[in-house]
Design a protein around this nucleic acid. Structure first.
Lengths: 370, 370
DNA sequence: CTGAAAGCGCTAACAG
DNA sequence: CTGTTAGCGCTTTCAG
């Protein structure tokens, strides 16, 4: 675009043109626009006038080449249309703006190969850093990290990559709080509707330092573990048959929820570990003519907009998507020199109580009623 | 990041390093990586080996400077967290990928000044083009356009800027279809919950060529006009008191909906001109204990995910956000040479009938019932 | 305070 | 097929 030619077909003005027009050297023009050095007010004015006249725009390409950086950062998310990720993107955008950096966005759709391609591209662009909600596992991210790229993970971190800075929601605390709430309401047969690991063999159990691994790592694992631990701590055993995992597609979530609710008419509450799962639970409950919360209580992780529009409105754990993005960007840009951080930054997840959970109904036959 | 130094603190390899390591000239290395010209298989292999060894990544900065383009496009939306816009962004991303271009994203939040800043920044980056859901009006976009920048508008076009290519949803047809559906159901007192123009004095009535202006222009105006026209065509007069406009905030939408439904207990259906408005309508109806669709039918423009989760599920007009983004990007990148297009590309909006609309109830007192 | 000159990493003629 | 050369637009010593 502008780089090529203006409306008249002429190439856009360069620093040289401006210098000539203002009758100064190019160094002076550079000083005026880059803020470096000092120029006399008079000269400055003359240069600016000339620039205005020629509609001169400094080229980030030229500057970047010289400075060896582009002034932009890369952001990789699985999918922009997921409301939580959209929030995260908005957070990054907001923060990047304060640093005067632009952001190159791309979606990896959970595909490690695609993610790797994107990273390559970003490195070629010489971005000042990369923020990623990673899909690939350790190996995939060792490369860019080793190359000296500054990367910050957001929302999740590949197992075994704890040395890389990250900003995560405190899912463990969130799920614990939610579980305690449910148990406090009197529920014992709580179903946990979780997500299965995406990559085929990627999310191996993860060795990791005990006491830390339970707070970071794949969110799906963290949440399930938090659920189990809390139930155990509360003296409520968890029925393995009630812990199910779905893949990340809507269909899979729906099937899992339907299977669960039909098979076990005795569950009194379902804790969905994500908004897609929650959506499935709501839909299935409706299909099965189960009243919420009279027949089943439903709660989920992720406080998406529709939670409030549901009837009844859904109780959720709100994860701070915007803040996660903002902090991740801050970590990348502000603390780019000192790599002092040890362990991921954990942002609080808040329990939002609405109307979808109540005390369990006295009893119900194991088979689907009617 | 990579541009600076690798893990060892050394600067990253350049084409020169690779050339030296492979014992060839830099031009040969360039040929290997840019695909231009031809190199003997043997040499090519040697170069690639050297590059691999040095972990060489061609710098887009250098290439860009030479080629006078960055290989990326700019995308400006009002807000990434709006589901419709998120779809649009996803569409652009998908298309850009096929062209091997990256996309620089930013949100203008409806602020023309901010939008102008973003455009400036994009021009400095020498993007190959800009796709925008514009906030500013004519004047603001004359500059970048005049500068020779290729821009394509998506979702809406500033009044008076018809010469710039654009991709829009056929809102006119969408609203017409929806209105006809409502009238066909027997509704006569249909409320139109619309959006007020964002910019203070920006959206002036717009002179424009008749017969065209009714399909493009600010969506809010297009939709309202489509509603009025359709009602008129159907012989159903529109009650001016039932046409209300809210600002783009949730609060405003809620207030407008509440005011409307309380003031006019006799409306039998409300047509919300956007998902925020629809959300407000649903919430207000619930608050007022109005059954949907028994007491009021509700329908809205924008088929956001929650429409299906509502109880009852909401009837909507689905606007193809993803396609709009995709096509806009295609228009920008594929047809960048020939500027043959005349008038905006209109993509169909589809009526999605769910359960929120039914025949009007026989009668109801003007005052709020209980 | 200001100008001249030397590149930043890469591509594109132009010769061999 | 391959090397040499001349910049692309900008920042930055280094003199003046």
């Amino acid at each position: 675009m502008a780089a090529e030619r203006d409306a008249g077909g002429r190439r856009s003005a360069t620093i040289k043109d401006v210098a000539a027009a203002a009758g100064v050297g190019i160094a002076t023009v550079s000083r005026v626009f880059s803020g470096t050095g000092s120029v006399s007010p008079a000269t400055r004015e003359r240069v600016q006038a000339a620039a205005r006249e020629l509609d001169y725009r400094p080229s980030a390409l030229g500057r970047g080449l010289k400075l060896r950086r582009s002034g932009g950062i890369g952001l990789i998310v699985p999918d922009v249309t997921d409301p939580f990720r959209a929030d995260l993107v908005a957070g990054v955008l907001a923060c990047a703006r304060t640093f005067g950096e632009h952001v190159i966005l791309d979606a990896a759709h959970g595909d490690p190969a695609r993610e790797a391609e994107i990273v390559d591209r970003l490195v070629e662009q010489r971005v000042d850093g990369i923020i990623a909600v990673p899909a690939g596992t350790e190996a995939a991210w060792r490369a860019p990290a080793g190359i000296g790229a500054s990367v910050v993970f957001a929302d999740r971190v590949p197992p075994g990559l704890r040395e890389i800075p990250a900003v995560l929601a405190d899912d463990r605390a969130g799920v614990r709080t939610l579980t305690e709430y449910l148990v406090g309401l009197g529920h014992r047969r709580i179903a946990f509707l979780g997500a299965a690991p995406a990559s085929p063999g990627g999310d191996r159990p993860a060795p990791a330092a005990p006491g830390e691994e339970d707070r970071a790592g794949p969110p799906a694992q963290v949440r399930e573990r938090a659920f189990r631990d809390t139930m155990a701590a509360l003296g409520a055993g968890v029925d393995e048959d009630l812990v199910v995992a779905a893949r990340h597609e809507r269909d899979s979530a729906f099937a899992a929820a339907a299977g669960l609710l039909q098979r076990r008419g005795d569950v009194t509450a379902v804790l969905a570990a994500g908004h897609l799962l929650g959506e499935a639970a709501v839909l299935v409950a409706r299909e099965l003519d189960l009243r919420v919360p009279a027949d089943v209580s439903i709660a989920m992780v992720d406080d998406v907009p529709w939670a409030e529009l549901c009837d009844p409105p859904l109780t959720t754990v709100a994860r701070p998507g915007h803040d996660i993005g903002y902090r991740a960007c801050e970590l990348l840009l502000r603390d780019r020199t000192r790599r002092t951080r040890r362990g991921p930054v954990l942002l609080p997840a808040e329990l939002v109580i609405r109307g979808s959970c109540g005390p369990p109904r006295p009893a119900r036959s194991p088979a689907r009623p009617a």
